[in-house]
């Protein structure tokens, strides 16, 4: 899995509340059989007009945000469908970090599996970050976001932090517990034979 240590980049503000995964990547792109290539369809419905041309007012169509690697988002970001196509599309576009007041559970989990760091910060903090011109720096080890001479600390679960810092292969890690899994299954068979 991809590692995440630190990042300095452009932060694009998209502060509307309840941005759902249908909006991040709509259904017509879910028939793909691969993980890559979804970046150009990211936010499709609000990024392009009905003729397929870019909407100039949409943030990711404007300079300098076309090259954003950080997204500043509103509360409950990533709600709705469990589709991992949403983080795939964000990652493929170049987003490595999302800062929002809150995230939907499944989306939050899906980020870590794709080398994206989701950072919960309060709405006033996210709004303050959106006011900053120029790049932001995110340091996962120190759990700090900084920009324009100011710093913000964020909370992060130590397990998730380690996963990103070390780029751990989660499945490989679980496979190391195979003896425990087998023992558990054997015990279970005796107790709950119908399963």
């Amino acid at each position: 899995m991809e590692r995440f240590e630190s990042l300095t980049g452009i932060a694009a503000p998209l502060l509307q509340a309840n941005v759902d995964t249908d909006l991040i990547i709509p259904k017509q792109f879910l028939t793909t059989l691969v993980r890559s290539g979804l970046g150009r369809h990211l936010f499709f419905e609000i990024r392009y007009d009905r003729g397929g041309l870019e909407l100039p007012e949409f943030v990711l169509n404007r300079e300098p945000f076309r090259k954003a690697s950080i997204l500043l988002a509103g509360p409950n970001f990533g709600c709705g469908s469990s589709r991992e196509h949403a983080p795939w599309a964000l990652r493929d576009f170049g987003i490595r970090c999302i800062i929002a007041p809150s995230f939907a559970d499944i989306f939050f989990n899906n980020c870590f599996a794709n080398g994206i760091l989701p950072i919960p910060l309060s709405l006033p903090d996210v709004e303050a970050l959106a006011e900053i011109e120029g790049p932001l720096t995110v340091d996962l080890a120190a759990q700090i976001v900084s920009g324009a001479g100011r710093i913000w600390r964020f909370e992060m679960d130590p397990g998730r932090k380690a996963t990103l810092l070390e780029g751990l292969d989660e499945i490989g890690r679980t496979e190391r517990s195979l003896p425990a899994i087998e023992a558990w299954e054997t015990g279970r068979e005796g107790q709950r034979p119908w399963l």
């Binding site: 589709r83 991992e84 499944i106 599996a113 679960d157 397990g159 989660e170 499945i171 679980t174 496979e175």
Partner: peptide
């Protein structure tokens, strides 16, 4: 019963387990 992403689908297919909080 809960929904999961595709990486977790792969995880469950491979191990029948999931790391959870």
């Amino acid at each position: 019963a809960f929904g999961i992403g595709t990486s977790e689908v792969e995880h469950v297919l491979a191990t029948q387990c999931l790391p959870q909080r």
